[in-house]
């Protein structure tokens, strides 16, 4: 699957350098074990880290699962969408 950022125009460096957070949002369909598995596969997290993030999604409705460069954040959200998880990104505070 092609990166979603390949055909984008370049932005000023200062704006590019702002870190972005990838969020996973809770939904009533995706199973907890599945969400944990996806976090392990997409981000390479170990079982404990992935399960902690999954539980945060389950209990608070959302979790910041990764923070970093915008282009990579877009790539991760694309991956999470392909696994059918509700996911989005926002500028990190």
């Amino acid at each position: 699957m092609a990166s979603p950022s390949t055909s984008k125009k370049s932005k000023p460096k200062a704006q590019k350098d702002v870190p972005w957070s990838v969020l996973v949002l809770d939904d009533p369909v995706n199973l907890m074990g599945y969400v944990t598995m996806v976090l392990k596969r997409v981000f390479g997290y170990n079982e404990e880290r992935a399960a902690t993030l999954m539980l945060e999604v389950h209990t608070t409705g959302r979790s910041v699962v990764w923070t970093g460069a915008k282009e990579k954040a877009e790539f991760y959200v694309q991956q999470l969408h392909s696994w059918q998880l509700k996911s989005t990104m926002e500028k990190a505070v």
Binding site: M1, A2, P4, S5, S7, K8, L25, E74, V77, Q78, H81, S82, K86, S87, T88, M89
Partner: peptide, 16 residues
């Protein structure tokens, strides 16, 4: 779920 400026509809939705 994505910001409209991300062009997600155009760049990602077809692959998904």
């Amino acid at each position: 779920l994505m910001d409209k400026e991300s062009d997600w509809e155009e760049l990602v939705v077809p692959d998904l």
